[in-house]
Write a protein that binds this DNA or RNA. Structure first.
Length: 225
DNA sequence: AGTGCGATTGACT
DNA sequence: GTCAATCGCACTA
């Protein structure tokens, strides 16, 4: 059994007992997730999406990455965009789970969420960081950087690397198309949990999930272990 | 119609 | 570590 797996940047992943990590497994084509297999509930979905694949099919080419960091914005959360009810901007958060809600933050970055509740109930999972898999040269062009660790580390950077913008708002991520969710390219590592990043309102519950020890996760070092 | 501010990033001390 | 950039949106009037 392999004891180490070499990632895209040469970083070596420690294999847990029982893992069978191979490069072949990492490079196979992902299977599109069915809506029925997405767990019910925002927090459950945020945890579930760690290790899954996000695939972007764009005229310029295909890019994909492994989701290594998410945050839950469940119903009733004052920091969530759904808190004050549906508006033209956040309408996708009120669709059934598995649709892309994309908005512009700070006039600078696009942020990508996955709707996470039943139809009519507002909730979302913010995708915060991606480990690049396919289309790395294209991501480098879009990000104006060749630093692999920075291509998808942070929600705005992730969206830029994947060319995710308002045009992706409302896309069904459970169907092959311009943007979709795939299964895991390789077994997940342990999942960590922490408070969310960049939230100034109210006291924080631990609603951020991340793949432990991944160098592609954003945030302070202590929130990556 | 005007205003305040944010689920960020990149540059800089 | 600090800080400015930048703009769509929700809220007030």
């Amino acid at each position: 059994m392999e004891s180490r797996f070499r990632g895209n940047d040469g970083y070596f992943w420690e294999a847990a007992p029982g893992d069978a990590l191979t490069e072949t497994a990492a490079l196979r084509s992902p299977r599109c997730l069915n809506r029925a297999e997405l767990p019910l509930g925002t927090v459950e979905l945020a945890r579930y999406l760690i290790g899954k694949t996000l695939v972007r099919e764009h005229p310029d080419g295909i890019t994909s990455g492994r989701i290594v960091e998410t945050e839950a914005y469940p119903p009733g959360d004052a920091a969530g965009h759904a808190f004050r009810g549906p508006t033209p901007r956040n309408r996708v958060l009120f669709l059934e789970r598995g649709y892309a809600y994309v908005y512009m933050a700070y006039g600078i970055s696009f942020l990508c969420n996955v709707s996470s509740e039943e139809a009519g109930v507002g909730g979302g999972v913010l995708l915060r960081a991606l480990e690049p898999l396919e289309g790395i040269p294209l991501m480098e062009t879009r990000r104006h950087s060749t630093r692999l660790l920075d291509l998808g580390r942070g929600p705005g950077r992730m969206a830029a690397a994947m060319a995710i913008d308002r045009g992706c708002d409302g896309i069904d991520l459970c169907a092959r198309g311009p943007l979709w969710l795939g299964d895991e390219p390789r077994p997940r590592r342990a999942i960590g949990r922490s408070v969310r990043i960049g939230i100034s309102r109210e006291v924080e519950a631990p609603l951020r999930f991340y793949e432990r020890h991944s160098p592609f996760v954003s945030g302070p070092t202590r929130l990556r272990a």
